[in-house]
């Protein structure tokens, strides 16, 4: 069974079956973990700031003024 699951989940990364991807995405969403796309990874700066690409919270008040 383990080999079968290994094969199927690897194939899923190619085939993108919607039903199975829905389950995978819901598991990741529940745990707050999600693989970043390459575009998103490029936005994460070296310090790993979670709001890369957006206005940092401490600067948002300044933007309002």
């Amino acid at each position: 069974m383990e080999k079968k699951l290994t094969k199927l989940f690897d194939y899923q990364k190619f085939a993108g079956n919607k039903a199975l991807q829905g389950i995978i995405d819901s598991v990741h969403a529940r745990s707050g973990r999600r693989e970043l796309s390459l575009d998103e990874e490029e936005l994460v700066n070296a310090a790993g700031a979670p709001y890369a690409g957006q206005t940092p919270p401490e600067d948002q008040k300044k933007d309002l003024n």
Binding site: K3, K4, L5, T6, K7, L8, F9, D10, Y11, Q12, A15, N17, A19, L20, G22, I23
Partner: peptide, 22 residues
């Protein structure tokens, strides 16, 4: 996690099987 050469296809790599797994 990458299946080895001799494991890639034994007929289970189909969309139907992925749906069954889901």
């Amino acid at each position: 996690q990458l299946p080895s050469d001799d494991e890639v296809d034994d007929g289970i790599l189909r969309d139907e099987t992925l749906t069954e797994l889901a």
